[in-house]
Design a binder for these strands. Structure first.
Length: 590
RNA sequence: UGCCUGGUGGUGUAAUGGUAGCACAGCAGACUCUGACUCUGCUUGUCUAGGUUCGAGUCCUAGCCGGGCAGCCA
């Protein structure tokens, strides 16, 4: 199996639609977009949307725009912008970098004439170009405002003076039609005047709003004269104090798509009911270019995780985790720090497919690709997490026996390194049992076991203190069972890992596990009650000395234990910190 | 007693009127200087009822069950 298994992506209903549009030459170029709101970090659920959009661009020689959907300054913060941008670049690096598209710094929608009609479109360029910056909805506020004026002139929007409470009352309910706002039939002139005054800051928050004039009796709630603009006297992280009215999602999103030349606007299922509004806004403006269309697909929800940004924020603010990039978080930043590769994530996400019905994906599928990926690329090392000392009494103090260890047996041309067997070594507590359970293949009284890459040893003595606690083990090294020695082919049932006590390096190792104890923590009354108290366990481990040179980004397999990577935040020259990405599959278990 | 959507093994999906296949998980075994990897085998599925058809997971009708929709959030 190749490391990159995502090269051939099976089709799905959205790709089928795109393929048909390509065949019809409906659009000059396929343009998709990913429109995050800068109010949190990207998580694995977003990865599906990113990979779908980037993948479609990749397969159709198209573009994939990153656009921040920043129309609500009350909830958004600038620092999320950089983190989100970095996460996206990481996720698609080496896979769809070519398709990721930004705009020239400072570029705004430019006027052009199409078939005698004035049109607006924003320039774009490769995200890799100097000066390129992500698109933002806030960059279109001027244009959006002009379009709103246009709507008013066409009698398709009006200024409403109903309070938020009254607006809700007039809207009716899913089973009862709403009633018309008393302000619904203002003249175009009055609406224009009022809307301009809204913009000028003459009214307080919530005093008035701009509404689409559609149908208060529509069975679709989103067509009951939805709000287009609200008054918010609040600074925006991008536009500062320039505006005190801000467009709402349904109005800003479709037009942002249009201004960027987006052709296929892909979003999640809960927006299905918004689609008629998406189309209504665009149709009402009589725009000259081919219009984008919205298509919806199901979100990705893995088991044992929560996806809601609100709840993820609670974990961060409540200090349940160390931050958005805590290795237990389902965020892209957290998973990267944990040691999960972008390719593994891509394989997992793409493997789950695209459908129009909700489901819950077994996190085991992610764990499987992570192991498969890491098995192929991670260099092997020996490390002992919970040491017990073992003295090989037939070796002299200070004597070292060089052993060759393979760095990666999966490699086509494996390289090797040298380990030193010494009189005192550490082995894993789990690898010794004074009273062994049935089929225990490790070290036990009267038993033999192979030290990986070294030789077979036999256990001679168990040394305990006066209260009966285990102090150390004494054994004999059968040096003629080393590789290349006459007895090297001698078989024993078990092989265990070890490190030289005199050469070992101490390091903090963070053992991560699933963050929740139930498959669907999001469905619990209180997801915090389902937190796994053992999601992080820290040990001071004994590592083979070559690990002193490990740097963040390197991926290792500690043999028989799992996959580990230096922590990008806390591992430095003074102290080494390793994160456990995932354990090896363990069919022994207990 | 509204509107929109959708139902294929435990889970995620494929089959686009023609042998219900794949992956994960699970179980059993082989191999093994990682109880890993790899390999072999096995268990488990078309929501229900009618209809159309030589033939239905797929088309039609009815029902059942699920999800979404009443933010000046996105």
């Amino acid at each position: 199996m190749s490391v990159d298994d995502t090269s051939a992506i099976p089709s799905d209903f959205i790709r089928d639609i795109v393929a048909q549009h390509v065949a019809e030459h409906r659009y000059p170029k396929i343009v998709t977009r990913f429109p995050p709101e800068p109010n949190g970090y990207l998580h694995i659920g977003h990865a599906r949307a990113i990979l779908l959009n980037a993948g479609i661009a990749r397969e159709n020689h198209g573009h994939f725009n990153l656009r921040f959907d920043d129309t609500n300054p009350a909830k958004e913060e600038a620092h999320y912008v950089d983190a989100i941008t970095a996460d996206i670049k990481w996720l698609i690096a080496g896979w769809a970098d070519e398709q990721l598209t930004f705009k020239p710094a400072g570029a705004v929608p430019m006027t052009q004439t199409i078939a005698g009609k004035t049109d607006f479109q924003v320039a774009s360029l490769s995200a890799q170009s100097p000066g390129a910056e992500p698109f933002t909805a806030s960059n279109y506020f001027d244009q959006l405002y002009d379009y709103a004026l246009e709507l008013i002139k066409h009698g398709k929007a009006y200024v409403c003076d109903l309070s938020p409470d009254d607006t809700e009352k007039y809207r009716g309910s899913p089973t009862e039609p709403g009633k018309d706002s008393p302000f619904r039939n203002r003249t175009v002139e009055e609406n224009l005047d009022l809307f301009q005054r809204m913009r000028a800051g003459e009214y307080p928050n919530g005093a008035r709003s701009l509404r689409a004039k559609i149908d208060m009796a529509s069975p679709n709630m989103w067509l009951r004269d939805p709000l287009l603009y609200r008054i918010r006297h609040i600074a925006h992280h991008n536009t500062g104090h320039k505006w005190c009215i801000y467009p709402l999602y349904d109005y800003a999103h479709c037009l942002s798509d249009y201004l960027e030349g987006v052709t296929h606007s892909l979003c999640s299922l809960e927006f299905v009911v918004h689609r008629p509004l998406y189309d209504w806004v665009l149709d009402s403006l009589k725009l000259p270019r081919p219009l984008p269309h919205q298509y919806e697909f199901a979100k990705l929800i893995p088991t044992y995780t929560i996806m809601s940004k609100r709840n993820l924020l609670r974990l961060v603010q409540g200090k349940v985790v160390s931050g958005w990039d805590d290795p237990r978080m389902p965020t892209l930043a957290g998973m990267r720090r944990r040691g999960i590769t972008a390719n593994a994530l891509r394989r997992f996400v793409i493997g789950t497919g695209i459908t129009t019905y909700d489901g819950i994906t077994d996190i085991a599928a992610l764990e499987h690709v992570v192991r498969d990926e890491l098995n192929q690329i991670a260099e092997r090392r020996l490390a002992v997490l919970r040491p017990i000392k073992l003295v090989l009494t037939n070796l002299a103090a200070g004597e070292t026996i060089a052993c060759e260890a393979v760095n990666n047996p999966q490699s086509e041309s494996p390289t090797k390194r040298s380990l030193h067997l010494t009189r005192e070594i550490y082995i894993e507590q789990d690898d010794f049992a004074e009273v062994p359970p049935p089929k225990f293949f490790r070290l036990k009284p009267g038993g033999e076991v192979r030290l990986k890459y070294a030789c077979i040893i036999s256990l001679d003595k168990i040394v305990k203190d006066e209260v009966g606690n285990l102090v150390e083990l004494h054994g004999t090294a059968q040096l003629d069972t080393r590789s290349g020695q006459p007895n090297s082919s001698k078989k024993v049932k078990g092989t265990i890992h070890w490190v030289s006590a005199s050469e070992a390096m101490d390091a903090e190792v963070r053992l991560y596990d699933r963050m929740f104890t139930v498959p669907e923590p999001g469905a619990e009354a209180d997801f915090l009650q389902a937190l796994n108290p053992h999601s992080l366990e820290t040990v001071i481990a004994k590592l083979e000395p070559s690990l002193a040179a490990a740097t963040p980004g390197q991926l290792f397999q500690f043999e028989r234990l799992g996959y580990f990577t230096p922590d990008a935040r806390d591992s430095g020259h003074e102290s080494r910190v390793f994160n456990r990405t995932i354990t090896l599959r363990d069919t022994w278990a207990k």
